[in-house]
């Protein structure tokens, strides 16, 4: 009995910092934002409670479309990141051993030693009309006038994929590392070609890694602010920018909080749907 109560106190002490951290920094602010999102300004310093802010999202096609656009592009960026990262991860995990493996892995990490802002600026230097790529093409004589590669959806996707690569490569390498080479060999030995082995053995085995990578990349992309604003240009309103605008430029915290919660809910829904479609469970994917 004594021992058990001692254990309980110990457990309490052990959990207290974490619980306080979570409570003070995550739960409390969210609760407050949620209350704010239910407020509605009627006159200076006079508020009523109501769901207007949430309704606004569904009534005004502007916001709804921005969200749809953001979600679509996030899914696209996630899919493209997966397509590009998979061969890279496969090469690192299965083709290389020892030193070259570590070096290549480190190379994937390298861009993340600078901030996202600097990375985006790097792309701007490369892609702008008077930038490196355009100048290079002119020098080669392939084009006769400067070409603008920046400020369009493709540039934005490039930036988003670049930013997300590592978060896809790491779980994929982790998943593929545990794939026994003899499973691949058995797949070939029993008559499968490369495509079959990939589809029936490699991908099913790597599925938890694929799904966790996709969730992380999707959430990061959806919540990204810097890259879409800097590389996307005039037509590429991102939903997070919408939230920033409401909070900072329009002083409309009520609308901003509502958008924040809608983003949370809708992205959770998309992740849930993705898990359902890939028949994975969150618990399995996150371990």
């Amino acid at each position: 009995m004594n021992q058990r109560s001692g254990f309980r106190v110990g457990l309490f002490l052990l959990l207290a910092p974490g619980v306080l951290w979570l409570g003070l920094l995550i739960v409390l602010p969210h609760a407050e934002l949620f209350l704010v999102s239910l407020r509605e300004r009627v006159a200076p310093r006079v508020y009523e409670s109501g769901l207007t802010n949430y309704l606004e999202f569904f009534i005004e096609p502007l916001y709804w479309n921005t969200f749809l656009r953001t979600a679509t592009y996030s899914v696209m960026a996630t899919a493209l990141t997966l397509l590009i990262a998979f061969p890279v991860a496969y090469y690192i995990a299965k083709m290389l051993r020892g030193r070259p493996k570590n070096i290549l892995f480190l190379l994937c990490l390298l861009p993340f030693w600078v901030s996202e802002l600097v990375r985006a600026l790097g792309w701007i230097i490369l892609l702008r009309e008077t930038g490196v790529v355009s100048t290079f093409l002119q020098t080669l004589g392939l084009v006769d006038a400067p070409v603008e590669f920046l400020y369009n959806d493709a540039a934005m996707l490039v930036g988003l994929i670049y930013t997300s690569m590592l978060f896809m490569v790491i779980p994929l390498v982790g998943a593929l590392d545990t794939l026994d080479d003899s499973l691949i060999e058995a797949g070939y030995n029993l008559g499968g070609n490369g495509f079959v082995v990939l589809r029936e053995i490699v991908i099913p085995h790597a599925m938890p890694g694929i799904v966790s990578g996709c969730i992380v990349v999707f959430m990061l992309t959806l919540g990204n602010y810097v890259t879409p604003t800097l590389l996307g240009g005039k037509d590429s309103l991102w939903f997070t920018e919408q939230i920033y605008n409401q909070f900072i430029l329009r002083f409309n915290w009520e609308q901003g909080s509502a958008f924040g919660f809608l983003l949370l809910a809708l992205s959770s829904f998309i992740v849930w749907a993705g898990l359902k479609l890939s028949r994975q469970s969150l618990g399995k994917v996150m371990t």
């Binding site: 499973l183 499968g192 099913p204």
Partner: peptide, 29 residues
């Protein structure tokens, strides 16, 4: 290539496909 050879192999650690049922494993080839 190995997938075109009329030789099947039982691997040291068997290399059964864990993502498939027994019947799916046997039916793979």
């Amino acid at each position: 290539p190995p997938n075109k050879r009329p030789a099947s192999m039982v691997f040291q650690h068997l290399a059964l496909f864990p993502m498939m049922s027994v019947a799916e494993n046997v039916g793979y080839g």
